[in-house]
Design a protein around this nucleic acid. Sequence first.
DNA 1: GTCTATACGTTGATAGAC
DNA 2: GTCTATCAACGTATAGAC
Lengths: 204, 204
Amino acid sequence: MKDQKELVREINERKIIEAAEQVFARYGFKGATTDQISKQSGLPKANIHYYFKTKANLYHQVLAGILNEWMESAQAFDNQEEPKQALTQYVESKMEFSRKRPFASKVWANEMLHGAPVVSEFLETTLKNWLDDRVQVIQNWVESGKINSVDPMVFIYMIWSVTQHYADFERQIVLLNHGKEFTDEEFSEKTQQVVNLILTSVGV
Amino acid sequence: MKDQKELVREINERKIIEAAEQVFARYGFKGATTDQISKQSGLPKANIHYYFKTKANLYHQVLAGILNEWMESAQAFDNQEEPKQALTQYVESKMEFSRKRPFASKVWANEMLHGAPVVSEFLETTLKNWLDDRVQVIQNWVESGKINSVDPMVFIYMIWSVTQHYADFERQIVLLNHGKEFTDEEFSEKTQQVVNLILTSVGV
DNA sequence: GTCTATACGTTGATAGAC
DNA sequence: GTCTATCAACGTATAGAC
């Protein structure tokens, strides 16, 4: 059984991580201040340090949570055998992630942009392994004539960049759309367009 | 005639702007320090302030330079009438920009990621106008049956995101490539793959 | 576990000699 | 125009009362 203190700890840690993710997304690691995170979370600044010791450690934990979600969405690639179904499901899953978790995507993009100082090891191991498997899947599709001949890495990077663009460059997209955000319906239409472009690009 | 002092000023301002672009790309606006910029430029810190007054002003000027280049590369879209030539030239031009000016691309991406606090006005005016014209060109291609039916904005965002990915996510790409950077030849092959995918995606 | 007050380091910016 | 020395502001982190 969890006692009350553990429960309080869990709730507060979650509040702080959610607040931190937003503030890191908006201002970057250095640009974010513990004061902003405390105000966003509704808890006093000293408590941030009580629960997470340092700002750097808090950032690590925010990224760890994002990595988990990243890998979950990656599994959408595997639930189908045929390229059309697998790719459709994967692209839709990536677009949904951009829609639902724009802060997470931005924190990730920011980390990459600045040289992945924290997640390098994850990229070289877990993600590299995931990628090698997927490259093989795509290679098999090519060899069995199910999709056009294509460099699998270039193709995967296209999927990543196009889908993540809707989160990371959200502000640019809004400003180029008369300052209006997409409705759910509009975003759903954009998603279908993206799926079509990606499927067509490899002849599916 | 320029006297010697003006010449010194020009040379030093250029040195500082180039240094600043690199440091801002690596660490973001807040993460970059004037001390790092001074060391990178080879000039003492006080001179940064002598020439540019404030760090914020220096950042503005770095972005202004990038905007100019952005628009220049944008013109590659107009030099050809037919979709195949126009798109090929534009995508190659964007890929070349990512290759030659990765720091510029990263500073731009960082600015977008954090809500475009400095370049919002440019986006809403100059870039919006450019975009509207290009949307019309693509719409005409669709209506004359030269390319598949497609949402022009989705298509343009695909071109932007895919090409810029090679600069902005450079570190991720290197880490997923056994830590090896692309040679010029490899990058040229990737460029051709990207061109093919984008042309094929709209049936060209 | 919560929170106020504060110490300490870092960094943007300037003064003033050359 | 150049550069060293220094200041003032800010932000992380902690001490210690409750």
